[in-house]
């Protein structure tokens, strides 16, 4: 649905986005992941025509954004939740959007309810909104016209943990109904659970892409984090099976798929108390792939206690 072909954006002698191509399909959530300054926002701004591309092309549903009539009805956009008039109320912002798109005013109340902004909050001026509330308002605005494509730049920024979980469910359901979602983040854990497809971007270039499983496979297989009632029994079984493992904070990290570890435990009647994919694999991959684009030297920093979980 979203097609980016050979997109390049140059500022003076600096290349913010460097010849990137990708496609977002209907029914999927695409996570656009990269460290600060990688070029995510620039790419999304080009998509909606706020920044002209130096080279390359972006189409949404086969059209340039500029050629989509009443685009709010087709493409929901949230680029910067703080880009609202500080003196308007949240309700007024949605009302302006609904009027432009030609929607009934009942839509405003529906959206406010969807993002859990209550009556009094909706009548407060945006200068008095927290970042999380602005983000909720921005999501409401993006969804206002019931679009089939969503372009969200760091929508989880400033949301509380419950809010992030709510948003995950929202976007997942939206994609399940056939919508196309592109959402960016600089935090892996925000997108890895919902993104069907992930694009890793560093210094303007796409450095890796694919589903979470594919990315992990490329990174040398997924690790599993497991805890058991009796750790000695478990490590014994793992050694028998020839699986390599390392004890971490309060569990064991195994270089194998969770299903293999689970099967082994079942065979030996070992009681497991936790069994899951260790995201460290993806996190490491993310840091590694974007290593030369990081601002901070992560390899030199000592990992905090339990970080590998």
């Amino acid at each position: 649905m979203i097609k980016v072909e050979g997109l390049t954006r140059v500022y003076g002698s600096f290349t913010a986005v460097d010849d990137i191509s990708f496609t977002c399909r209907p029914g999927t959530v695409t996570g656009f992941l990269g460290p600060n300054g990688a070029g995510k926002t620039t790419t999304m701004r080009v998509m909606v025509g706020l920044t002209p591309a130096t080279r390359g092309d972006v189409t949404i549903g086969g059209l340039h954004f500029h050629d989509i009539p009443n685009p709010g009805r087709h493409v929901g956009v949230l680029l910067d939740a703080s880009a609202q008039h500080a003196g308007r109320t949240g309700r007024e912002v949605l009302t302006l959007g609904a009027q432009t798109m030609g929607l009934p005013m009942s839509r405003v109340d529906e959206m406010l309810e969807l993002v859990s902004l209550d009556e009094t909050e909706s009548r407060r001026r945006i200068r008095n909104y927290s970042l999380g509330m602005r983000q909720r308002l921005g999501i409401a605005h993006a969804l206002l016209g019931d679009p089939s494509v969503l372009i969200l730049d760091e929508p989880a920024n400033g949301l509380d943990p419950a809010g992030i979980r709510w948003m995950r469910g929202l976007l997942k359901g939206y994609a399940d109904r056939g919508g196309t979602v592109l959402l960016s983040s600089h935090l892996l854990h925000e997108v890895e659970q919902i993104a069907d497809e992930m694009l890793l971007i560093g210094r303007g270039k796409i450095v890796a892409r694919g589903s979470k499983a594919e990315l992990l496979a490329n990174a040398g297989g997924a690790g599993t984090l497991v805890t058991a009632l009796d750790h000695d029994q478990l490590t014994g079984a793992l050694t028998d099976r020839g699986l390599s493992f390392v004890p971490v904070a309060d569990g064991i990290r195994v270089d194998a798929q969770p299903v293999d570890v689970g099967r082994l435990a079942a065979e030996r009647s070992i009681v497991l108390t936790e069994l899951r994919t260790a995201s460290g694999g993806l996190e490491d991959l993310f840091l590694e792939l974007t290593a030369d684009t990081q601002r901070d030297d992560v390899s030199a920093a000592p990992a905090p206690e339990g970080a590998s979980l």
């Binding site: 209907p26 949404i60 989509i68 009027q99 030609g102 089939s148 056939g178």
Partner: peptide, 29 residues
Amino acid sequence: MTTVPGSTAMTLDISQTERVPFSRLVHVE
């Protein structure tokens, strides 16, 4: 939403959408 469940169409159906009328833009401004 204009798409149906399971739809994989890569094009937007804009046949039912009109441009935002100019009068509406003026009204909003």
